Amino acid sequence: MVDLDAYFARIGYAGPRDASVATLRALHALHPATIPFEAIDCLLDRGVDISPAAVDAKLIHGGRGGYCFEHNSLFARVLTELGFGVEGLAARVRWNAPPDAPAQPRTHHVLKVAAEGQDWFVDVGFGGCVLTAPLRFAPDVIQVTDHDNYRLLAIPGGLSLEVRREAGWIPAYDVAFSPCVPRDYEMANWFTSTHPTSHFRHNLLCALTTPQARYGLLFNRLTTRPLNGPATKEILDADGIEAVLRDTFGLAVEPSWRPMIERAAQTPPA
């Protein structure tokens, strides 16, 4: 299924290998703090291979990150290997979309995890708003995590995840209760990584959430949201982008990325 020794070395975990809630919480905190969210392969026209071997080679052994289909498929295999009950679900992303925007396809991978007689909402692959702890499947309850507060709202056939930010409650995505099979994710991943309307085909973005702060790169703009303190933004040149990708996000930057980085550096300030 997955090389647990290599995965645990990648995220810096040395705790128990059991199916307890404590283990789930520990892994859920470490994964998004060490394996960045990024979709650089989409910008390079490489596509994204979500087969287990490809995901492990990239995220565990290759010094790279990935997006939801890579992160959560890997996390699902790790949890299954440890004895958790894991079910894959799909969601419609609503982040930054107006309330009357047309419904988007279900192109986000999330997990339902059973631990100690309770179901948990799990997601280690949602960019700069990624969960750092599992949430209880409890609608209309504010659930506090280190970086953000969340709530799940009941909707027909599923739940809507919202996050509390300075502007109030912001919708993240709507998740359906219908379980998915691997082919569902293959189709959604193909659309997300190759379709011309997918924002991953046009935007350089990267995110990492550590115990100290959330770091988010969009084109040439680096946003830092400390655990305690106001957010800061910085405009970077090409050398600065490359340095941040390497030093902040821990990516093994390839020489072939340079043209993509230089294009991102030319993006006008928002």
Rank of each mutant, 00 (worst) to 15 (best):
E70Q: 13
G216L: 12
A19V: 07
T224C: 10
G125A: 15
V244K: 15
W120Q: 10
I241F: 07
R258T: 03
A29H: 11
P139G: 10
E166I: 03
R165W: 02
A264T: 00
N228V: 14
M260I: 04
T80P: 01
E116D: 14
T192C: 07
T223R: 08
L43N: 03
P226Q: 09
P16K: 02
G85I: 07
F219M: 12
A39F: 02
V78R: 05
A213Q: 09
F137M: 14
A26S: 14
A29T: 09
H109W: 13
S160M: 15
L159M: 14
I40G: 03
G83Y: 09
P102Q: 14
D237E: 12
P226G: 08
A231C: 11
L152K: 12
L43H: 06
L205F: 10
R201G: 01
D45V: 02
R94G: 05
V175G: 00
D49Y: 00
R92K: 02
L152W: 02
L159S: 11
A103Y: 01
R25M: 12
S73E: 06
Y150Q: 06
P211A: 13
C42R: 01
K58F: 05
R106H: 08
Y13S: 11
A103N: 06
S256A: 15
W169N: 07
T145P: 01
R10P: 03
V181E: 14
P134Q: 10
P255E: 08
A265H: 04
C206G: 04
F75R: 09
T232H: 09
G62Q: 04
Y185I: 07
A29F: 01
I241C: 04
L89D: 00
L4S: 09
A270E: 11
L205I: 04
P156Q: 11
L217M: 11
